[in-house]
Amino acid sequence: MIIEQLQKELIEYATSIGVDKIGFTHASPFHEMKNRLKRQQELQYQSGFEEPDIEKRTEPRLLLNSAESIIAIALAYPSKMEDAPVGKKGSRRGIFARASWGVDYHVAVRERLNLIEQWLKNRVPDVQTKSMVDTGELVDRAVAERAGIGWSGKNCSIITPEFGSYVYLGEMITNIPFIPDTPIENECGDCTLCLDVCPTGALVNPGQLNSKRCVAFLTQTKDFLPDEFRKEIGNRIYGCDTCQTVCPKNKGKMNWIHEEFKPEPELAKPLLKPLLHMSNKEFKAKFGYMSGSWRGKKPIQRNAIIALAHFKEQSAVPDLIEIMDKDERPVMRGTAAWAIGKIGGSDAEQALLKAREKETDEEVLKEIEKGLTLLKA
C-alpha cells in the first residue's frame, strides 16, 4: 500500500477511536534532548521515576532496531470540574491534579495504541511496533514536539493550540516510513507566568525543571516531606496544576470530550478525614482506577495530614492523635505529630508530651519536637 494513503487512513481511524491529535516523525536520535538529559543528570534534577538510561530515552533504534518513524498521539483531558464540592470547616477537602481525574490515562492511551497497532497489523502483515505511555523509555514530550502535536512550553508541558497543555501523550515506534509532520512554532513568547508562580521554584529556567522540588513529584514521595515544602503543598494530595492553570494558552480550554476522563467530584476532591483511616482494600476499591493511586495510600494519607494542618482543622486533632499513638508507620506518626503542633488546641501539648514518652523512632521524635515548638510559637 502507498504510504500516503496508509497514513491518511490511519489518521481517520485514530480519530474514530477517540485520538484527539496524531502526528508523525522520523526515528532519528533526539540529539538536543540527549544533551538536556545529561545536563539534568549532572544537576541531579531527575525525579528517579524516569528510565535511567539516556541512550534508550533518545535513540529509538535501540528500542526497535528496524525503526523508521514514530507515531505520536494525544488525548485531551478536562481542565474544569462540574459540580465541584466545596470544603468547609469540619469537612475539609483535598484535591487530585487534573491528570488523575477519571480513568487512569496509562490505560486509556495504551488502549488506543493497541487498537492502532492491530489496525496496522491488519494492513501491513510484517509491521513491527513498540508502544509506550509515560513510563516508557522515550521522552513523550520530545516525540510529541517533533511530531507536531504541540510545542514544548516553559512549564515543561506540551502545549497544543486546540487543547492547551491538558493532553495525555503516547507514542509508537514502527518500521513503516511514515511522512514526518512539521513541528509547531513555540508561542510562549516572553510570558513567564508559570515560572513566576511555581510554588517551590521547581521551574528553574524556561523548559528546565528540578523534579525534586516539583510539588507534583513531592506529593508522590513516601518518606517525610522536607519542612520547606509542607506549606507549599496546601491541600494537594496528588500532583500540582499551578503551572498549567496560569498559562494563557489554557484559558477557556474545558476539554469535556471523553467521558472516561470526567472526574467523579467526591473522588477528585475527597474529604480529608476519611482518607486517614482507609484500609488498603478500601483505598484500592475507591481510588484504584485513578492514576493518582499508583503509589498506594501512604503518600495520599501523609498529604491529607499536611492538608489538615494547612487548614488548621481542629476537628481533625483526635484523628491525628490516634494516628500518632497507634499507626505502625513512622512517617504517619511523625507527620501527625507535626500537624497536631501546627493546628494546636487544648489537647495538643498533652498528647505530644505523652507520645514523646513512649516513642522510640528518632525521626518521629524529631517531628514531635517540631510539633511542640510550633505550639510555643
Rank of each mutant, 00 (worst) to 15 (best):
Y45W: 12
G48V: 10
G48Q: 03
E50W: 00
E50V: 00
E51Q: 12
K56I: 02
R61H: 06
R61V: 09
L63P: 02
L63E: 01
L64A: 04
N65Y: 07
S66G: 09
E68Y: 08
E68K: 14
I71S: 01
A74R: 00
A76S: 14
Y77P: 02
Y77I: 02
S79C: 11
M81F: 11
M81L: 15
E82F: 15
D83G: 05
A84Q: 08
A84H: 12
V86R: 10
K88S: 12
K89W: 13
G90C: 10
S91D: 12
G94Q: 00
F96C: 13
R98S: 07
R98F: 07
A99I: 14
W101H: 09
W101G: 05
D104S: 09
D104W: 03
Y105K: 08
H106M: 07
V107H: 15
V107E: 11
A108G: 06
L113N: 04
L115K: 15
L115Y: 09
I116W: 01
E117P: 01
E117W: 12
L120R: 10
K121Y: 14
N122C: 11
N122R: 12
R123P: 11
D126G: 05
V127Q: 12
Q128K: 14
T129R: 05
M132H: 03
M132C: 13
V133F: 07
V133N: 08
V133I: 06
D134V: 09
G136D: 02
G136N: 10
E137Y: 13
L138I: 06
L138P: 01
V139F: 13
A142W: 00
V143L: 10
A144N: 04
E145V: 05
R146G: 02
A147D: 04
G148K: 04
G153M: 06
G153N: 02
K154S: 05
K154A: 05
K154Q: 07
S157M: 15
P161Y: 10
P161S: 04
E162C: 12
G164N: 08
Y168W: 06
L169I: 07
G170V: 02
G170S: 07
M172S: 07
M172G: 01
M172Y: 05
T174M: 06
N175Y: 09
I176E: 00
F178C: 04
F178E: 00
I179R: 14
P180R: 08
P180A: 07
T182W: 13
I184M: 10
I184T: 04
I184R: 06
I184D: 08
